[in-house]
């Protein structure tokens, strides 16, 4: 069967693939870093793509800080998960704005919550970036003060903080 030739030809095909892959990734506007951030102790996991717009500056990394903000009553918590997930359980007082249905739901949200106060988005924890995406969308709409609670609903629930 000519294994030497098969292996040699395989190296040619893989070589072409590797060169093409790194070249396209380097020039592509949607390219990603060579090493991502996959340790959730360092924050929300991410491939560190060029399109990543949500900076760590928005992040609330401590559940206790999120609870203090919640208790102050000055922030609106916004749930970025699906409506079903929201209905199964959400942070007490939070409103639903699923990032997957943002276009359909945003008009009602704008009318109901024109507030210039603090908005805290959250989703399903550090493996989820929906809350970051929602935060960016809200900032783009002109909401001036948006933060992201990165531990999300699982982190909140684990602390036995109030849910509904």
């Amino acid at each position: 069967m000519g294994w030497t030739k098969i292996v040699k030809d395989s190296f040619v095909l893989v070589g072409i693939s590797v060169v093409a892959a790194f070249s396209v990734n380097f020039f592509s506007p949607v390219g990603i870093a060579l090493v991502g951030r996959w340790d959730d102790r360092q924050g929300v996991v991410s491939a560190r793509a060029k399109t990543d717009s949500a900076g760590d500056a928005l992040a609330i990394t401590d559940v206790k800080v999120a609870k203090q903000i919640h208790d102050s009553g000055k922030a609106l918590f916004v749930d970025a998960r699906s409506r079903d997930d929201y209905e199964e359980g959400h942070i007490q007082g939070a409103v639903s704005l699923p990032v997957g249905q943002f276009d359909e739901a945003v008009e009602a949200f704008l009318e109901q919550y024109p507030s210039e106060g603090l908005i805290v988005t959250y989703c399903s924890g550090r493996a989820c970036d929906d809350s970051h995406r929602l935060a960016q969308l809200l900032l783009a709409l002109g909401y001036p003060n948006v933060r992201v609670f990165i531990d999300g609903y699982p982190g909140w629930e684990a602390e036995r903080y109030p849910v509904e």
Binding site: L13, V14, V18, A21, F22, V24, I32, A33, L34, G36
Partner: peptide
Amino acid sequence: NPIAIILPFV
């Protein structure tokens, strides 16, 4: 990330 970059091109 290297897998995500290379595998689709393979």
